[in-house]
Design a protein around this nucleic acid. Sequence first.
DNA 1: TGACGGAAAACTGTATACAAAGTTGGGGGC
DNA 2: GCCCCCAACTTTGTATACAGTTTTCCGTCA
Lengths: 243, 243
Amino acid sequence: MNNAWHKEMLAEVKAGGRISDQDIVEKVRRAVLMQRLPPDTKLPEVTLGEVFGVSRSVVRKALTRLASEHVVDQRPNQVARVRAPSIEETRETFEARRLVEGEVAAQLAGQLDDEIMATLETQARLETEAYERGDEPARIEHSLTIHHLLAEHSPNRVLGAMLTDLVLRTSIVIALYKRPSLASCYLENDHPRLLDRLGKGDGEASRTCIHEHLHSLEALLDLRPRENSIDLMSILGRTAEQT
Amino acid sequence: MNNAWHKEMLAEVKAGGRISDQDIVEKVRRAVLMQRLPPDTKLPEVTLGEVFGVSRSVVRKALTRLASEHVVDQRPNQVARVRAPSIEETRETFEARRLVEGEVAAQLAGQLDDEIMATLETQARLETEAYERGDEPARIEHSLTIHHLLAEHSPNRVLGAMLTDLVLRTSIVIALYKRPSLASCYLENDHPRLLDRLGKGDGEASRTCIHEHLHSLEALLDLRPRENSIDLMSILGRTAEQT
DNA sequence: TGACGGAAAACTGTATACAAAGTTGGGGGC
DNA sequence: GCCCCCAACTTTGTATACAGTTTTCCGTCA
């Protein structure tokens, strides 16, 4: 699994009280998001049970939920693993999110009350500050909060729930495919500009803004096809021929 | 639960072989879709277990999955019930489906190979025939097949999966809110027209066609606010004051 | 008669035991 | 030296027991 995370969780559980399946879902999801649990990490039921101090029953329920959230891969008779979405799926997830979040933003434009707008602006400011002091985890946290707030306040709850799922999934693939040379996926001004257009009540401008934001984000990733296990196979095959 | 369905399932299980959690998911989902299990029907774990000849462990997993599909409502310490989406949620589901299926159709236009187009046209013809002979279950079956085929062949698998979910959810609410006076929610020509536009490769016309189709469908429902338990509460409250 | 209270029944939550399937590593054959 | 096969080990699948919660129903009291 991941030994550091392992220990950290153990300590946290000892300190806190009882743990429910939903707690496990949230802790694992967060660990995946924060790259504490990299893709393909095995998540055996007994191990997780020991970490959280519960039996397999609870862990199993949590894993089933995580699988339906696309965070974990659960195959019959095999250990659950942290899911590693393909490059193909990454592109498709971004496209789906552009469609859904664009629509949500368009509907939300001019409909957000002052209190929520203020919260959004605070988060945008905190994101910038976190970026400037190089605190990437905090930056991600604030960036996610902005998008989650949009999803949460969508007048259409069905679309809102879909957006929440898509935000999670894009976050995972960003962590996975971020160009290693980049310290951060921060896009200066994108969030403030979006908030400005939302505040002015311009639905179509807000939609466009979301589209551009997500295209820019996607462009920060390295989505070139790469040597995967299949390619490795063929290479090994050729080496064998050369011998 | 539902006694007729109950017995039918018992017979089916005795005839067939082993039953997995996924089988239960499919059978319950289908029963809900076909209105064999009306909204709010209680689904106790032991009863389902007896019906399908498995223990609660398997049933619990199935119920968790059904809950994540929005077919069933699972609250802590309470029996699972067939979900009854509100009128509000019904409208939102239709809106979400228009957005997603419109996009899928636009992407699919001109991209479907002859074999799939032929299958789609067969289903459309079978739907009409089923309608003409008054076989509503068969009509629904063929109609659903058309939309599921679109979802399945969407070049964007993420959008496709979202569409599959939305088709299921709209089917459930159609069953729930269909005007009782209507024998069927059949819309003559809608499906053939869509297939024609898909075949011609006109993406935007296909999207429009989907939008119109779903608006027409929604219009066949009775989504007027009704006396529900909350209204009943307030009435009882006022009666109490009057006394 | 109707409302309240409490015991019994029904049901879910969790842990655990056993069965079945998958994984791994070592020894023998080529 | 390499591959294959088999046995031990690991891990998941399913059933079941018991604890805790909710619901139901009946008897009592105003």
